[in-house]
Nucleic acid binder design. Structure first.
Lengths: 180, 180
DNA sequence: CCCGAATAGGACATCCGTGTTCTACTTAGG
DNA sequence: CCTAAGTAGAACACGGATGTCCTATTCGGG
Protein backbone atom coordinates (compact mmCIF):
# COMPACT_ATOMS: atom_id res chain seq x y z
CA UNK A 1 0.00 0.00 0.00
CA UNK A 2 2.77 2.33 0.95
CA UNK A 3 4.60 1.32 -2.19
CA UNK A 4 1.62 2.14 -4.36
CA UNK A 5 1.31 5.65 -2.88
CA UNK A 6 5.02 6.17 -3.16
CA UNK A 7 4.94 5.26 -6.83
CA UNK A 8 1.90 7.42 -7.47
CA UNK A 9 3.71 10.38 -5.93
CA UNK A 10 6.85 9.77 -7.98
CA UNK A 11 4.78 9.46 -11.13
CA UNK A 12 2.96 12.69 -10.36
CA UNK A 13 6.25 14.48 -9.75
CA UNK A 14 7.63 13.19 -13.04
CA UNK A 15 4.52 14.48 -14.76
CA UNK A 16 4.58 17.91 -13.13
CA UNK A 17 8.22 18.88 -12.74
CA UNK A 18 9.20 19.05 -16.42
CA UNK A 19 6.71 21.85 -17.06
CA UNK A 20 6.76 23.39 -13.57
CA UNK A 21 10.02 22.96 -11.75
CA UNK A 22 8.60 24.74 -8.73
CA UNK A 23 5.59 22.46 -8.27
CA UNK A 24 4.58 22.37 -4.61
CA UNK A 25 4.08 19.28 -2.49
CA UNK A 26 0.36 20.10 -2.45
CA UNK A 27 0.15 20.15 -6.25
CA UNK A 28 2.03 16.89 -6.50
CA UNK A 29 -0.24 15.34 -3.87
CA UNK A 30 -3.34 16.34 -5.83
CA UNK A 31 -2.04 14.83 -9.07
CA UNK A 32 -0.97 11.69 -7.22
CA UNK A 33 -4.48 11.52 -5.74
CA UNK A 34 -3.01 11.34 -2.27
CA UNK A 35 -3.24 13.43 0.89
CA UNK A 36 -0.52 16.00 1.35
CA UNK A 37 0.45 14.44 4.67
CA UNK A 38 1.08 11.15 2.92
CA UNK A 39 3.67 12.86 0.75
CA UNK A 40 5.40 14.27 3.81
CA UNK A 41 5.36 10.87 5.49
CA UNK A 42 6.87 8.98 2.58
CA UNK A 43 9.39 11.70 1.75
CA UNK A 44 10.93 13.52 4.67
CA UNK A 45 11.42 16.72 2.72
CA UNK A 46 10.81 18.18 -0.67
CA UNK A 47 14.50 17.87 -1.36
CA UNK A 48 14.35 14.15 -0.71
CA UNK A 49 11.42 13.77 -3.08
CA UNK A 50 13.27 15.61 -5.84
CA UNK A 51 16.30 13.43 -5.25
CA UNK A 52 14.20 10.29 -5.50
CA UNK A 53 12.67 11.50 -8.75
CA UNK A 54 16.06 12.38 -10.19
CA UNK A 55 17.65 9.09 -9.19
CA UNK A 56 14.67 7.26 -10.65
CA UNK A 57 15.08 9.09 -13.94
CA UNK A 58 18.79 8.34 -14.08
CA UNK A 59 18.04 4.71 -13.31
CA UNK A 60 15.71 4.47 -16.27
CA UNK A 61 18.23 6.17 -18.53
CA UNK A 62 20.95 3.81 -17.34
CA UNK A 63 18.78 0.81 -17.98
CA UNK A 64 17.79 2.06 -21.43
CA UNK A 65 21.40 2.72 -22.41
CA UNK A 66 22.50 -0.63 -21.03
CA UNK A 67 19.94 -2.35 -23.21
CA UNK A 68 21.48 -0.67 -26.26
CA UNK A 69 24.63 -2.80 -26.16
CA UNK A 70 26.72 0.18 -27.06
CA UNK A 71 29.88 -1.86 -27.49
CA UNK A 72 28.33 -3.88 -30.28
CA UNK A 73 28.56 -2.89 -33.93
CA UNK A 74 29.62 0.42 -35.47
CA UNK A 75 29.56 3.45 -33.19
CA UNK A 76 27.12 5.29 -35.44
CA UNK A 77 24.58 2.49 -35.18
CA UNK A 78 25.05 2.34 -31.41
CA UNK A 79 24.35 6.08 -31.22
CA UNK A 80 21.18 5.56 -33.23
CA UNK A 81 20.08 2.83 -30.81
CA UNK A 82 20.68 5.18 -27.90
CA UNK A 83 18.67 7.92 -29.56
CA UNK A 84 15.82 5.53 -30.24
CA UNK A 85 15.87 4.45 -26.61
CA UNK A 86 16.20 7.84 -24.95
CA UNK A 87 14.21 10.24 -27.10
CA UNK A 88 10.86 8.69 -26.04
CA UNK A 89 11.68 9.14 -22.35
CA UNK A 90 13.48 12.43 -22.82
CA UNK A 91 10.82 14.48 -21.08
CA UNK A 92 11.53 12.60 -17.86
CA UNK A 93 14.97 14.04 -17.41
CA UNK A 94 14.32 17.45 -18.83
CA UNK A 95 13.70 18.90 -15.39
CA UNK A 96 17.23 17.93 -14.44
CA UNK A 97 18.32 20.97 -16.40
CA UNK A 98 16.46 23.48 -14.35
CA UNK A 99 18.15 24.60 -11.24
CA UNK A 100 20.68 24.12 -8.55
CA UNK A 101 18.26 22.32 -6.27
CA UNK A 102 18.88 18.98 -7.91
CA UNK A 103 22.50 19.12 -9.02
CA UNK A 104 23.66 19.76 -5.50
CA UNK A 105 23.39 16.02 -5.03
CA UNK A 106 26.80 14.44 -5.43
CA UNK A 107 25.24 11.05 -6.06
CA UNK A 108 23.36 12.46 -9.02
CA UNK A 109 26.40 14.19 -10.44
CA UNK A 110 28.41 10.98 -10.21
CA UNK A 111 25.77 9.02 -12.03
CA UNK A 112 25.56 11.65 -14.73
CA UNK A 113 29.29 11.77 -15.27
CA UNK A 114 29.48 7.99 -15.45
CA UNK A 115 26.84 8.13 -18.15
CA UNK A 116 28.75 10.82 -20.03
CA UNK A 117 31.90 8.75 -19.71
CA UNK A 118 30.22 5.78 -21.31
CA UNK A 119 29.09 7.99 -24.16
CA UNK A 120 32.61 9.35 -24.44
CA UNK A 121 34.07 5.86 -24.56
CA UNK A 122 31.66 4.93 -27.34
CA UNK A 123 32.71 7.95 -29.35
CA UNK A 124 36.40 7.22 -28.75
CA UNK A 125 35.80 3.72 -30.05
CA UNK A 126 34.13 5.18 -33.12
CA UNK A 127 37.22 7.29 -33.73
CA UNK A 128 39.55 4.29 -33.33
CA UNK A 129 37.43 2.26 -35.71
CA UNK A 130 37.65 5.05 -38.25
CA UNK A 131 33.91 5.68 -38.16
CA UNK A 132 34.06 9.09 -36.51
CA UNK A 133 36.20 12.13 -37.26
CA UNK A 134 39.13 12.38 -34.85
CA UNK A 135 39.31 16.16 -35.25
CA UNK A 136 36.08 16.76 -33.33
CA UNK A 137 36.67 16.74 -29.55
CA UNK A 138 34.97 13.86 -27.82
CA UNK A 139 33.66 16.07 -25.02
CA UNK A 140 31.96 18.31 -27.55
CA UNK A 141 30.30 15.38 -29.29
CA UNK A 142 29.07 14.06 -25.95
CA UNK A 143 27.61 17.44 -25.04
CA UNK A 144 26.06 18.00 -28.43
CA UNK A 145 24.56 14.53 -28.56
CA UNK A 146 22.99 14.78 -25.11
CA UNK A 147 21.72 18.24 -25.89
CA UNK A 148 20.22 17.02 -29.15
CA UNK A 149 18.50 14.16 -27.33
CA UNK A 150 16.21 16.30 -25.29
CA UNK A 151 16.01 18.93 -27.96
CA UNK A 152 14.32 16.14 -29.91
CA UNK A 153 12.05 15.34 -26.97
CA UNK A 154 11.01 19.00 -26.90
CA UNK A 155 10.42 19.22 -30.63
CA UNK A 156 8.23 16.14 -30.46
CA UNK A 157 6.28 17.50 -27.48
CA UNK A 158 5.58 20.68 -29.38
CA UNK A 159 4.61 18.84 -32.51
CA UNK A 160 7.33 20.08 -34.82
CA UNK A 161 8.87 16.67 -35.44
CA UNK A 162 7.28 13.24 -35.70
CA UNK A 163 8.14 10.90 -32.88
CA UNK A 164 9.21 8.14 -35.23
CA UNK A 165 11.43 10.39 -37.35
CA UNK A 166 13.28 12.17 -34.55
CA UNK A 167 16.00 9.62 -33.70
CA UNK A 168 16.88 9.05 -37.34
CA UNK A 169 16.92 12.78 -38.12
CA UNK A 170 19.06 13.43 -35.06
CA UNK A 171 21.69 10.86 -36.02
CA UNK A 172 21.49 11.82 -39.68
CA UNK A 173 22.46 15.42 -38.98
CA UNK A 174 24.93 14.64 -36.23
CA UNK A 175 26.83 12.08 -38.27
CA UNK A 176 26.41 13.14 -41.90
CA UNK A 177 25.65 16.81 -41.47
CA UNK A 178 23.05 19.08 -42.99
CA UNK A 179 25.06 20.29 -45.95
CA UNK A 180 25.01 18.63 -49.34
CA UNK B 1 20.57 57.84 -11.14
CA UNK B 2 17.45 55.77 -11.42
CA UNK B 3 18.73 54.46 -14.72
CA UNK B 4 21.97 53.31 -13.15
CA UNK B 5 20.15 51.33 -10.46
CA UNK B 6 17.78 49.92 -13.00
CA UNK B 7 20.65 48.68 -15.12
CA UNK B 8 22.48 47.28 -12.10
CA UNK B 9 19.38 45.30 -11.18
CA UNK B 10 18.93 43.98 -14.70
CA UNK B 11 22.59 42.98 -14.83
CA UNK B 12 22.30 41.21 -11.51
CA UNK B 13 19.22 39.35 -12.68
CA UNK B 14 20.99 38.29 -15.87
CA UNK B 15 23.86 37.02 -13.75
CA UNK B 16 21.70 35.12 -11.28
CA UNK B 17 18.79 33.71 -13.23
CA UNK B 18 20.69 31.35 -15.51
CA UNK B 19 21.97 29.33 -12.55
CA UNK B 20 19.05 29.96 -10.22
CA UNK B 21 15.77 30.51 -11.97
CA UNK B 22 14.05 31.06 -8.64
CA UNK B 23 16.32 33.82 -7.42
CA UNK B 24 14.44 36.12 -5.06
CA UNK B 25 14.18 39.88 -5.28
CA UNK B 26 16.35 40.10 -2.17
CA UNK B 27 19.14 38.04 -3.75
CA UNK B 28 19.02 40.12 -6.90
CA UNK B 29 19.11 43.31 -4.83
CA UNK B 30 22.22 42.14 -2.98
CA UNK B 31 24.07 41.30 -6.20
CA UNK B 32 22.98 44.61 -7.72
CA UNK B 33 24.26 46.34 -4.58
CA UNK B 34 20.92 48.04 -4.12
CA UNK B 35 18.25 48.08 -1.44
CA UNK B 36 15.43 45.64 -1.87
CA UNK B 37 12.92 48.47 -1.82
CA UNK B 38 14.66 50.04 -4.77
CA UNK B 39 14.03 46.92 -6.79
CA UNK B 40 10.35 47.04 -5.91
CA UNK B 41 10.14 50.69 -6.83
CA UNK B 42 11.75 50.31 -10.25
CA UNK B 43 9.92 47.09 -11.06
CA UNK B 44 6.34 46.85 -9.88
CA UNK B 45 6.47 43.09 -9.50
CA UNK B 46 8.84 40.21 -9.88
CA UNK B 47 7.00 39.22 -13.01
CA UNK B 48 7.69 42.63 -14.53
CA UNK B 49 11.38 42.31 -13.70
CA UNK B 50 11.57 38.92 -15.37
CA UNK B 51 9.79 40.30 -18.39
CA UNK B 52 12.23 43.18 -18.63
CA UNK B 53 15.18 40.82 -18.41
CA UNK B 54 13.71 38.53 -21.04
CA UNK B 55 12.88 41.34 -23.44
CA UNK B 56 16.36 42.74 -22.95
CA UNK B 57 17.93 39.40 -23.78
CA UNK B 58 15.80 39.01 -26.89
CA UNK B 59 16.72 42.54 -27.93
CA UNK B 60 20.42 41.71 -27.76
CA UNK B 61 19.90 38.48 -29.66
CA UNK B 62 17.90 40.32 -32.32
CA UNK B 63 20.59 42.96 -32.67
CA UNK B 64 23.33 40.35 -32.87
CA UNK B 65 21.51 38.36 -35.53
CA UNK B 66 20.69 41.50 -37.48
CA UNK B 67 24.38 42.38 -37.57
CA UNK B 68 25.09 39.00 -39.17
CA UNK B 69 23.54 39.94 -42.48
CA UNK B 70 22.03 36.51 -42.80
CA UNK B 71 20.84 37.08 -46.33
CA UNK B 72 24.38 37.60 -47.57
CA UNK B 73 26.57 34.78 -48.85
CA UNK B 74 26.09 31.01 -48.54
CA UNK B 75 23.70 29.84 -45.84
CA UNK B 76 26.41 27.80 -44.12
CA UNK B 77 28.60 30.85 -43.69
CA UNK B 78 25.67 32.86 -42.41
CA UNK B 79 24.99 30.16 -39.82
CA UNK B 80 28.61 30.32 -38.75
CA UNK B 81 28.33 34.10 -38.33
CA UNK B 82 25.23 33.62 -36.19
CA UNK B 83 27.00 31.04 -34.04
CA UNK B 84 29.97 33.37 -33.58
CA UNK B 85 27.64 36.16 -32.56
CA UNK B 86 25.33 34.22 -30.24
CA UNK B 87 27.52 31.68 -28.50
CA UNK B 88 29.34 34.35 -26.48
CA UNK B 89 26.06 35.73 -25.15
CA UNK B 90 24.34 32.38 -24.94
CA UNK B 91 24.25 32.33 -21.16
CA UNK B 92 21.99 35.37 -21.25
CA UNK B 93 19.10 33.55 -22.78
CA UNK B 94 19.64 30.22 -21.13
CA UNK B 95 17.18 31.08 -18.38
CA UNK B 96 14.51 31.52 -21.04
CA UNK B 97 14.41 27.73 -21.12
CA UNK B 98 13.45 27.30 -17.52
CA UNK B 99 9.83 27.55 -16.73
CA UNK B 100 6.38 28.74 -17.47
CA UNK B 101 6.80 32.00 -15.58
CA UNK B 102 8.48 33.69 -18.51
CA UNK B 103 6.89 32.12 -21.53
CA UNK B 104 3.44 33.20 -20.47
CA UNK B 105 4.31 36.55 -22.03
CA UNK B 106 2.81 36.73 -25.48
CA UNK B 107 5.19 39.48 -26.47
CA UNK B 108 8.14 37.26 -25.70
CA UNK B 109 6.70 34.33 -27.60
CA UNK B 110 6.09 36.48 -30.61
CA UNK B 111 9.63 37.77 -30.61
CA UNK B 112 10.99 34.25 -30.26
CA UNK B 113 8.90 32.90 -33.11
CA UNK B 114 9.91 35.76 -35.35
CA UNK B 115 13.53 34.89 -34.63
CA UNK B 116 12.90 31.22 -35.36
CA UNK B 117 11.18 32.22 -38.58
CA UNK B 118 14.21 34.18 -39.71
CA UNK B 119 16.39 31.16 -39.01
CA UNK B 120 13.92 29.00 -40.89
CA UNK B 121 13.99 31.37 -43.86
CA UNK B 122 17.77 31.26 -43.91
CA UNK B 123 17.73 27.45 -43.93
CA UNK B 124 15.12 27.39 -46.68
CA UNK B 125 17.34 29.66 -48.72
CA UNK B 126 20.24 27.27 -48.13
CA UNK B 127 18.11 24.45 -49.49
CA UNK B 128 17.10 26.44 -52.58
CA UNK B 129 20.72 27.35 -53.22
CA UNK B 130 21.65 23.68 -53.02
CA UNK B 131 23.85 24.23 -49.98
CA UNK B 132 21.66 22.34 -47.51
CA UNK B 133 20.02 18.94 -47.74
CA UNK B 134 16.33 19.26 -48.61
CA UNK B 135 15.49 15.97 -46.90
CA UNK B 136 16.04 17.37 -43.40
CA UNK B 137 12.98 19.26 -42.13
CA UNK B 138 13.62 22.97 -41.68
CA UNK B 139 11.90 23.02 -38.29
CA UNK B 140 14.20 20.32 -37.03
CA UNK B 141 17.29 22.18 -38.19
CA UNK B 142 16.06 25.35 -36.51
CA UNK B 143 15.46 23.50 -33.24
CA UNK B 144 18.73 21.63 -33.37
CA UNK B 145 20.72 24.74 -34.22
CA UNK B 146 19.21 26.79 -31.39
CA UNK B 147 19.68 23.93 -28.99
CA UNK B 148 23.30 23.57 -30.05
CA UNK B 149 23.86 27.29 -29.50
CA UNK B 150 23.29 27.23 -25.78
CA UNK B 151 24.71 23.77 -25.48
CA UNK B 152 27.91 25.43 -26.68
CA UNK B 153 27.50 28.23 -24.14
CA UNK B 154 27.18 25.59 -21.41
CA UNK B 155 30.16 23.59 -22.58
CA UNK B 156 32.26 26.74 -22.57
CA UNK B 157 31.05 27.74 -19.11
CA UNK B 158 32.04 24.36 -17.76
CA UNK B 159 35.39 24.42 -19.47
CA UNK B 160 34.93 21.48 -21.80
CA UNK B 161 35.26 23.48 -25.01
CA UNK B 162 37.37 26.51 -25.83
CA UNK B 163 35.41 29.66 -26.41
CA UNK B 164 37.12 30.34 -29.71
CA UNK B 165 36.59 26.83 -31.05
CA UNK B 166 32.95 26.42 -30.15
CA UNK B 167 31.24 28.19 -33.06
CA UNK B 168 33.42 26.47 -35.64
CA UNK B 169 32.96 23.05 -34.03
CA UNK B 170 29.22 23.60 -33.83
CA UNK B 171 28.87 24.45 -37.51
CA UNK B 172 31.35 21.77 -38.53
CA UNK B 173 29.27 19.01 -36.95
CA UNK B 174 25.92 20.46 -37.89
CA UNK B 175 26.83 20.91 -41.54
CA UNK B 176 29.40 18.25 -42.32
CA UNK B 177 28.63 15.69 -39.59
CA UNK B 178 30.81 13.77 -37.21
CA UNK B 179 31.30 10.67 -39.32
CA UNK B 180 34.18 10.18 -41.73
C1' DC C 1 -15.07 -10.98 10.61
C1' DC C 2 -11.42 -8.29 12.99
C1' DC C 3 -7.13 -6.08 13.81
C1' DG C 4 -3.44 -3.31 12.49
C1' DA C 5 -1.33 -0.62 9.10
C1' DA C 6 -2.00 2.98 5.97
C1' DT C 7 -4.41 6.98 4.72
C1' DA C 8 -7.36 11.26 4.67
C1' DG C 9 -8.20 15.51 6.44
C1' DG C 10 -7.95 19.24 9.48
C1' DA C 11 -5.31 22.34 12.57
C1' DC C 12 -1.22 24.51 13.59
C1' DA C 13 3.55 26.62 13.84
C1' DT C 14 7.06 28.37 11.10
C1' DC C 15 9.66 30.19 7.50
C1' DC C 16 10.33 32.74 3.28
C1' DG C 17 9.21 35.84 -0.47
C1' DT C 18 6.44 39.62 -1.98
C1' DG C 19 4.81 44.08 -1.81
C1' DT C 20 3.92 48.49 0.94
C1' DT C 21 4.95 52.34 3.86
C1' DC C 22 7.60 55.43 6.53
C1' DT C 23 11.73 57.96 7.93
C1' DA C 24 16.37 59.42 7.55
C1' DC C 25 20.31 59.91 4.64
C1' DT C 26 22.86 60.88 0.41
C1' DT C 27 23.71 63.08 -3.77
C1' DA C 28 23.32 65.51 -7.98
C1' DG C 29 21.91 69.83 -10.09
C1' DG C 30 20.46 74.60 -10.03
C1' DC D 1 24.75 76.35 -0.74
C1' DC D 2 20.03 74.25 -0.99
C1' DT D 3 16.49 71.85 -2.77
C1' DA D 4 14.52 67.86 -4.71
C1' DA D 5 15.00 63.34 -6.39
C1' DG D 6 16.80 59.05 -5.31
C1' DT D 7 18.15 55.75 -2.02
C1' DA D 8 18.84 52.90 2.25
C1' DG D 9 17.00 50.64 5.91
C1' DA D 10 13.60 49.15 9.04
C1' DA D 11 9.02 47.71 10.00
C1' DC D 12 4.83 45.59 8.69
C1' DA D 13 0.95 42.86 6.43
C1' DC D 14 0.01 39.16 3.60
C1' DG D 15 0.10 34.79 1.25
C1' DG D 16 1.95 30.47 0.23
C1' DA D 17 4.74 26.43 1.17
C1' DT D 18 6.82 23.35 4.36
C1' DG D 19 6.74 20.34 8.01
C1' DT D 20 4.32 18.37 12.20
C1' DC D 21 0.65 16.47 15.02
C1' DC D 22 -3.67 14.42 15.96
C1' DT D 23 -7.96 11.88 14.98
C1' DA D 24 -11.25 9.52 12.29
C1' DT D 25 -11.63 6.49 8.51
C1' DT D 26 -10.50 3.00 5.18
C1' DC D 27 -8.59 -1.03 3.58
C1' DG D 28 -6.23 -5.42 3.36
C1' DG D 29 -4.59 -9.77 5.28
C1' DG D 30 -5.09 -13.25 8.68
Amino acid sequence: MSDKSRQAILDAAVALLPTNSGASMAEIAVVADVARTTVHRLFTSREELLAAVAIGAIDRIDAAVLACQIDQGPAGEALLRIAEALVPIGHEFRFLEVGPQVWKLDALNDRWYRLADRLGALIERGKRDGDLRPDIPTAWLVDLFSSALWCAADSIDEGRVARNDAPRLLIEVLLRGAST
